[in-house]
Design a protein around this nucleic acid. Structure first.
Length: 700
DNA sequence: AAGCTCGCA
């Protein structure tokens, strides 16, 4: 403890905190800030007037740091020192130092916007700039004005970001605490390689043959590249002559790797053997691999971005920021002096790399965040003028308002509705919380809870297969239900119901190629959502997950109807003569049903006229992922609402500038409905549907 | 016929 670099700064730190409402702390890796700041402020007496809250961007970090601090103070975890993460609150009335994820702190401020129990709030790792951290930064700026007499805020950040954060908080003081890293020599390539996988392979082999012992860590962009690198390296290493150099083991490391394979990187190598770890950015912050002396940095990362005008997500390979590059390099200096091989010239680093990573708030759909801020009902805060460290684009905020309006969370003037107020209580995307509210009226709340919970974990449900093994797809997975042809939401519901009937048997998950952890997570989420819904509705709800054959025969109509209301902004209409769809809520685009979907075509090979989708993804051919068949009569009110949409009014007339000649949302929404020269076949479709209905009735 | 960087309530 005493040998941590931060210890000798204690006097300086507590004095600065005493005198200033906000302090920015630049704490380099290994400075001990996460464990020591809270203890210093406790010694200074800050726990007498309240709790010291320390946020972490990750759950594991919150738990492990809390455990460490409890140990250092010699107290039992959950007593004076505790933590709170989703599904797990290990705090008590005696808790004075509380580690929590930033998401949990946001939830707390929903019920207590002034966060009165806290005397100090430390936003740790703020330089990672998660969506939640950015919202908290904005809220803190307001809070220190309101609670100027009894709240201290500390923000820890990175070297390149400190000035900006300080400026944001009226030029508050910045303290820099050195870290405990060994020096890392940086080597640049002369040029950017045309193929970084090849170049990384060569560099790694070169190090392996020529350099002294020490593990190598390669930063790649994704699973595919990692698998390529691993197999390249294995081939080459095997080809070396016996005894010509030491042995090497090559380990992949990425998020979709099952945990038991991830932990392999924590066991040390056998003697006279070098480890080569090929990782995504998971090894930048989330996982720390000991023994790394050489880092090979591709300079790239995969980043998810949201386009507010199309409503589409894309996963792009982009250049990393300087902060990321330095973070990667630092991974070579944890045990002894190391070297970082950057597969790009220093000119690229200096001239092309951004200082800091584009914050998530500028890359995401903001519907949830805007609803959250509106639900706080802060009299002095107008969401469009909300003071963000890096404000999102106006377009993105307007998109959020439009989405919220279409699902009745805000009214035409942009004010939050009573439905919206309830929706904000649910830890879900607005479309799903709206679905739950509606399902409550239609008597299908139990099923809607299941769907919402399943979608919350969707990407973590299917077990990963290596690209070499035969790929199993959703629809030919032997025993799993197929959504009765109505789409993926219904399939997710049916899968969970099957599992429920096995009494949550873990073996059943394995047999059906479902990740056990994912399914258990779904069960937890479902339980949490059910509790919140119970609280909101005040009438006893039947939330048992028991599927009925009856529902199956009714075609899950109520549930699909509820989904249609919740996903009003994610609606698509089939093109007249083929199975492509065009989106209705956003700029009209042609999109396909994702090939993995279980949505079924009719006898004529046609998909349903209307579907709602969970997500649009910008692959070479834009796709709707997770679709659900809906009926036209449910769609009509949405289309009517789209016609009345007035984004200018929603945003209180702000930004009402005639700057965009075309592409404004209301016009497009209308255009979607009547495209000049294109016959509107809606009426004929209604007629056809009527006829089909009558024909079926006649048969019976 | 397409693709899963990383996190969080």
């Amino acid at each position: 403890m005493a040998n941590l670099p931060i210890s000798q700064y204690e006097e300086k730190i507590v004095e600065t905190v005493d005198k200033n409402p906000v302090v920015v702390l630049i704490g380099e890796t290994g400075s001990g800030k996460s464990t020591q700041l809270s203890q210093m402020l406790r010694r200074r007496g800050y726990t007498k007037s309240g709790v010291i809250g320390v946020t972490q961007p990750r759950r594991v970090a919150a738990v492990s740091v809390a455990r460490r601090v409890a140990y250092e103070l010699g107290v039992q975890l959950g007593e004076e020192v505790g933590y709170a993460i989703r599904f797990e609150d290990r705090t008590s009335e005696n808790t004075r130092i509380k580690y929590l994820t930033d998401g949990v702190l946001l939830r707390e401020s929903l019920s207590n916007p002034e966060l009165n129990q806290y005397s100090v709030i430390i936003l740790d790792e703020a330089h990672e700039r998660s969506l939640n951290t950015d919202i908290l930064l904005g809220l803190m700026k307001r809070l220190i004005k309101i609670r100027s007499s009894n709240l201290k805020v500390l923000v820890t950040s990175a070297t390149l970001d400190g000035d900006k954060v300080s400026k944001f908080f009226s030029d508050c003081p910045i303290l820099t605490i050195p870290g405990k890293l060994y020096p890392v020599e940086i080597l640049y390539s002369k040029e950017r390689p045309s193929n970084y996988v090849e170049s990384a392979t060569k560099t790694a082999l070169d190090i392996h043959v020529k350099e002294p012992e020490g593990d190598i860590l390669i930063f790649a962009t994704g699973q595919d590249d990692i698998e390529k690198l691993v197999s390249n390296l294995e081939d080459k290493v095997r080809a070396f002559e016996e005894g010509s150099c030491m042995d090497a083991i090559i380990l992949p490391l990425h998020g979709s790797l099952p945990p038991e394979l991830q932990v392999r990187v924590f066991s040390p190598p056998p003697p006279n053997c070098r480890r080569i770890i090929v990782a995504t950015n998971i090894a930048e912050t989330s996982l720390t691999v000991d023994g790394v002396v050489y880092v090979i940095d591709s300079g790239y990362v995969k980043q998810r971005q949201y386009n507010p005008s199309t409503g589409m997500y894309s996963l792009d390979i982009v250049q990393i920021s300087k902060v990321q590059a330095n973070q990667r390099a630092g991974r070579a200096g944890r045990t002894r002096p190391g070297t970082c091989y950057r597969l790009y010239p220093s000119r690229v680093y200096h001239d092309e790399f951004l200082d800091v990573t584009v914050p998530e708030i500028q890359r995401s759909s903001l519907a949830g965040s805007v609803l959250y801020l509106k639900s706080l009902n802060l009299p002095d805060i107008d969401i469009l003028k909300f003071d963000f460290l890096d404000p999102p684009s106006f377009e993105s905020l307007q998109d959020a308002l439009k989405q919220l309006y279409l699902i009745d969370a805000i009214d035409e003037d942009g004010a939050i509705t009573s439905i919206g107020q309830k929706m904000a209580e649910l830890p879900l995307e607005p479309s799903l919380s709206r679905t739950l509210m509606e399902a409550n009226n239609y008597g299908c709340i139990s099923q809607a809870l299941t769907v919402a919970a399943m979608l919350s974990a969707e990407t973590t449900l299917l077990s990963v297969q290596s690209s070499k093994t035969e790929k199993k797809r959703k629809h030919n997975m032997s025993n799993l239900p197929d959504g009765s042809g109505l789409g993926d939401h219904i399939q997710l519901l049916q899968i969970y119901e099957c599992w429920d009937q096995t009494d949550y048997d873990i073996g059943w998950c394995k047999d059906n190629n479902l990740k056990v952890r994912g399914m258990l997570f779904v069960k937890d989420v479902r339980k949490q959502l059910a509790q919140i819904m119970q609280k909101i509705s005040k009438v006893p709800l039947d939330v048992q997950a028991n599927g009925t054959v009856e529902e199956f025969h009714r075609g899950y109509r109520n549930l699909r109807k509820a989904l249609c209301v919740g996903y009003a902004n994610q609606l698509a209409e089939r093109k007249l003569h083929h199975n492509g769809y065009r989106t209705l809520g956003f700029k009209s685009q042609v999109v396909q049903v994702h090939p993995s979907s279980v949505l079924r075509q009719d006898e004529l090979g046609k998909f349903p006229d209307y579907v709602v989708y969970h997500e649009l993804i910008a692959t070479p051919r834009p796709c709707m992922r997770n679709v659900c068949a809906v009926e036209m009569r449910w769609v009509v009110p949405i289309i009517n609402k789209l016609k009345t949409l007035d984004v200018h009014k929603l945003s209180g007339g702000i930004g009402d500038i005639e700057e965009e000649p075309e592409g404004k949302l209301p016009d497009l929404a209308k255009k979607d409905v009547d495209i000049p020269g294109v016959p509107d076949d809606r009426e004929s479709r209604i007629q056809a549907a009527r006829e089909r209905f009558l024909a079926r009735k006649a048969k019976k």
